[in-house]
Structure formats: C-alpha cells, structure tokens
Design a protein around this nucleic acid. Structure first.
Lengths: 157, 157
DNA sequence: CGGCATCCATGCGGATACTG
DNA sequence: CAGTATCCGCATGGATGCCG
C-alpha cells in the first residue's frame, strides 16, 4: 500500500492487506490466508454493532440486558452467539455472578480495545461515504430497471 | 472514540462508529443506520479479496481472467457477482470492449481507491492479531471439549 | 435474568452446463 | 473470454419455549 508512486508506474508489492502475492507469467496470484476468517466474523450481522456498543464504556463491564436493549432488533439468540464468538476470539471477556437473579457482564479485552482505533478509521470512511454508495446503488438499480422493462440493448450481453 | 479519558470516568459520546446513541434511563440505545449495509457487503466472502487484488495496480484496469486466476478458489459466478456489486456501489468501474474474443476490464474508481487507506489500517491490525485470535479460538475450543467430555460443571449453566 | 434447545425460512455461495 | 441460467446444500439468523 505504501509503494504506489504517482507517476503511473507501479511497483510489484509482494504483500497486500496482509496477504502474500505470487508473481507468475500469467499475472499476480493472491495467496489466501487467515485474515479472511477474521474478517468474515467481523463482517457478520451483529459483531461490529456489539463491539461499538461495548466501546461506549471501554472500562466498565456491561450487563447482558443493557446490550440487549441497547442494540435494536437483535434477538437474544444472536446476542448470545455474537458474544460467545467474541469471547472465543479473545476480544470480549465474560464475567458470571451466580446471584439471584443471575448477573452476567461483558467488557472488551485489551485486544478488543486495540481494535477500536483501526476500526474507527475504517468506519469513519464508511460514515463519510455511505450516502454516496447508497445513491450509486439507487442509480444503478434504476438504470437496470429502465433497460430491462423495454428489453433495451445493454453492453452487458 | 476521541472522548475517552484514562481516569476511569467515561463521557457519554452521542455518536459511536458513525451511529447515533440515545441515552435513556435504562441505558444507552444504539440507533442503527446505513453503515451496516455497507459493512455487510464488505464483509462477504470475496469483496475484500477482490478490492485488495485490484489495488495491486490501482492505475491499470485488470482483465476478468487475471482476477479469476489471481484469486484462488473463487468461482466464475462469485467473481461476477462480487464485481457487479462493487460496480453498483461505485467502487469499481467496468470497461467492456466488444472484440473477439470479448475483453472486459475492471479498475477501482476514485471512491474505491479512497477506501484503501482506512482499509489498510484495519487489515494491518488483523495481520498483526490474527494469530493470537486463532490461538484463542483453539484454546477456547479445547477447553470446551475437556469440559463436555466428562460432563464437568461450567459456570455457563 | 441470562441462555440453551428446537424448529424453520431465507439467501449465500458452490457446481455445472450453456450462450455470444 | 466473459457471462448467464439453473439447481441445490448449507450456514445464518429469526421465533418460540423451557430451564437455571
């Protein structure tokens, strides 16, 4: 990412976004490795929301019910599953208090907190861009509608 | 993210990762908005890989076949779908040349390139952390196996 | 209160075959 | 070469009920 001169000539980095790149006669080949499995988890429906919510009070554990009520439309099941996966990844720690009624609290681990800054840089880009993206989507879908409703020729076929 | 003093007292930000936060008597409530739809797309199985691969030569269009061969295990169908979605989001542009055989080239748009830096910060964190995360997963799964195979008491129940 | 079990709908994504 | 069409398995995730 750091080796992109502006003169139109590109170098050939042998690593991109943490993935090794092989250079073959037929073109570069991306060597897949583990980051995908992490991204897949982070990209699921609720994970980022839960992390964001926990980061509201990075130093104070939060009860299950507070999370449940704080994240609109999340089901109890998905909240449990999401927290369990985050715990498994060492990003969230769980504290169980066998009282009556029982109390369970969650908080970001050190590793979880270390993710906040890089994540924030990325979500900032999303926050600044998503309106444009959604506008592009609408434009794209409209254009698609117009072309299919008359059977107009598209450059796609 | 910028209002977290280290003294144990937290302020109450009314925005986190681009999402508005309401403060109610029962606790904070996250107001969901569109960034989720963008993250969901970016988090799918192939999108980041395709973007990463295109970013190898940010100033030169890339042929479909080069992408196909460069990204291991991606099917023709999923590559087409992923590229179509990226085009729809205005992150990738498509250039069709009606020759024989036909040639189609793809490249990142300006918007697509604007994503590279924030994304790099995040993938850097992933690259530096994923081994630890996978180690945590293994440890977690092992502990789970040990506890279930004897019916040992866990604090979960 | 927290969370596990169960059932079930939906859609993502893979395999294959066929067109311009 | 690039793309579409079809079929299908499977994981995701929602709804409900029960248990400590």
């Amino acid at each position: 990412m750091e080796s992109i001169p502006k003169d139109g000539q590109t170098t050939m980095p042998d690593e991109i976004n943490g993935r090794p790149v092989l250079h073959t006669p037929r073109g570069p080949v991306l060597t897949p490795c583990a980051p995908g499995s992490v991204l897949a988890r982070l990209g699921d429906k609720w994970t980022i929301l839960v992390i964001s919510f926990l980061s509201l009070y990075p130093d104070k554990p939060m009860r299950f019910g507070v999370l449940r009520r704080g994240i609109p439309d999340i089901s109890q099941r998905m909240l449990t599953l999401t927290l369990r996966n985050l715990e498994r990844d060492g990003l969230v720690s769980r504290h169980y208090y066998p009282e009556l009624p029982p109390r369970v609290e969650y908080e970001l681990t050190e590793r979880g907190r270390s993710m906040l800054e890089p994540l924030a840089g990325f979500t900032r880009w999303i926050r600044d861009t998503w309106q444009d993206i959604e506008a592009s989507r609408r434009a794209y879908d409209e254009a698609e509608d117009r072309s299919t409703e008359i059977g107009e020729k598209t450059s796609r076929e």
